[in-house]
Computed example of a mutant assay.
Amino acid sequence: MACRTVCQLLQRRLASSAASVRLSAAEERGRRSAVFSREQARQRSLYPRTEKIEVTLQIPGLQGTLLVMNKGLSTPHSCARHLTEWYVTSSALALVDGKPWSLHQPLTQSCSLSLLAFKDTDPLLVNQAYWRSCAALLGQVLQDAFKEDFSVELLRLPEVLVTSGAFCCDVVLDPQLDAWNPSEESLRSLTRGAQQLIHRDLPWEPLEVAPPVALEVFSHSRCKQEEVEEKSAQSPKGTVILYRCGDHVLLSGGPLVARTGLCSQYEVTAIHRLGEGKWGLHRRAQGLSLPLQQQVRAQICRKCFSQCMKHLLDVFECQ
């Protein structure tokens, strides 16, 4: 009994010491990504032998087509590669047995599969995933935008309706920046950062993990640790879904689209002060974007895209 008490005390001291060590933003991103890679490799090792599953396509023109794929390794994106190039480049999200599913999330059993694109008759699920993805991209840009001596704490992504007119990302900046108000040039710089990530066409890699893994990923963020505990308590399986884009790891309230390259015209339009909150001065960054498949339709207003964005924000203020 005494030994157990001593061990618990040592664990608490070690955890406290780890939390007190301040890592640079780059070091913290690298550490989180390394934990993600380690858990990803562990999960893949659970399928040492190739086991086949049957995937039945529920796609117009391919209804009932059967694909034989690899359990725990093949993804909806892998299935798309067995079809035409159009499905590879246009698919943003999948339905697996009727449930929304990331294109890069491995399939673990025989199932039915639909591939969803922005120009589908009912694009609601794709649009919701796109809005979350744009917000996640904005969070990544904000974390990369400031000098290493300034901390940036991403709060949970607010669930904002597509019809609200703007995707949003809540953030707490270093207290040294409490007096900072973003200029037009600052917003343009954030926009350029987002466009660079879009140009790199990075995948959003999903990974379903147990809470201890997620807590290790976010060991230096009290805010994210609370979010992990809440999401795992609400999950029927007691797990949470992490996403990685480049070396940036995040939590999301739902599936994201396949890759950053599906975003097209993207603009960061405003950063509002929400006032003092639990973690400091809360701010809300806002932006608007159009998906790649709707780029041609938007060409007519490319020169005044920024002005259109600002007008929309006046009409649809994000609450």
Results as ranks from 00 to 15, higher is better:
His199Ala: 15
Gln195Ala: 07
Ala179Cys: 08
Ala210Pro: 06
Gln176Gly: 09
Pro291Gln: 04
Leu202Asn: 08
Leu197Phe: 10
Gly280Met: 04
Ile241Pro: 00
Gly254Cys: 00
Glu276His: 09
Gly238Phe: 03
Ala258Glu: 07
Gln234Tyr: 07
Trp279Arg: 11
Arg297Trp: 08
Phe218Leu: 12
Ala270Glu: 13
Cys263Asn: 04
Cys223Gly: 02
Val249Leu: 09
Leu187Glu: 10
Gly280Asp: 12
Thr269Glu: 09
Ala270Cys: 06
Pro212Cys: 14
Ala194Arg: 01
Glu267Lys: 06
Val257Glu: 07
Pro203Ser: 04
Leu242His: 02
His248Tyr: 15
Ala285Tyr: 02
Gln195Gly: 08
Glu276Pro: 03
Thr191Trp: 06
Trp204Pro: 00
Glu185Cys: 01
His220Gln: 15
His199Glu: 13
Cys223Thr: 02
Trp204Gln: 07
Gln294Thr: 05
Leu190His: 09
Val249Lys: 06
Leu190Asn: 04
Phe218Asp: 06
Gln225Arg: 15
Glu229Asn: 15
Ser221His: 06
Gly254Trp: 01
Glu226Tyr: 02
His282Asn: 14
Glu267Met: 06
Gly280Glu: 09
Arg222Ala: 13
Gly193Asn: 10
Trp180Arg: 07
Lys224Asp: 12
Glu208Ile: 11
Ser289Arg: 02
Glu216Asp: 14
Cys245Arg: 07
Ala298Tyr: 13
Glu230Gly: 01
Arg273Met: 00
Arg192Phe: 04
Val268Asp: 11
Glu229Cys: 14
Pro211Cys: 12
Leu187Ala: 04
Gln295Tyr: 12
Trp279Ala: 07
Ser289Ile: 04
Val257Thr: 13
Cys263Trp: 04
Leu288Lys: 05
Gly277Ile: 00
Gln176Ile: 08
Ala270Pro: 00
Ser232Glu: 02
Leu256Val: 00
Gly253Phe: 00
Ile241Thr: 15
